[in-house]
Amino acid sequence: MDKNTHVLIVDDYKTMLRIIRNLLKQLDFNNVEEATDGQEALSKLRTGNFGLVISDWNMEPMTGLDLLKEVRADAKLKSTPFIMITAESKTENVVAARAAGVSNYIVKPFNAETLREKIEKVMAHA
């Protein structure tokens, strides 16, 4: 797992951004940027060189699922690993995310071990 990977975390709750950033720091990921909704994230992704996206679902004006679809439809970004971290835990949400090409799915509240395990898994397939 390349700890220098440029990671984009996306969440409309600043507290959650801070928590994920700190958990990533504990996993030695220090090259981390933040966005507070899908549109801001998409704009950063198109101008940056990110190796992993960790996104919430429920955000305005662009949701995490819509961001995922945009990423998968973009020739430059389509193979970027994308982990959804969300409180949306219904089967239909997981199925929709999977259909849109999500790399892995973490349900909130989550623990640091789950985050580490999922990152390792998606980075291994990247």
Binding site: T63, G64, S89, A96, V107, F110
Partner: peptide
């Protein structure tokens, strides 16, 4: 959008899937 239609927030415990189920 589909993302907005499916954005319902946290479920009550009885209706929520666990990480293992996901």
């Amino acid at each position: 959008t589909e993302g907005e239609r499916l954005a319902n927030g946290p479920q009550l415990a009885a209706a929520a899937s666990s990480q293992a189920e996901i």
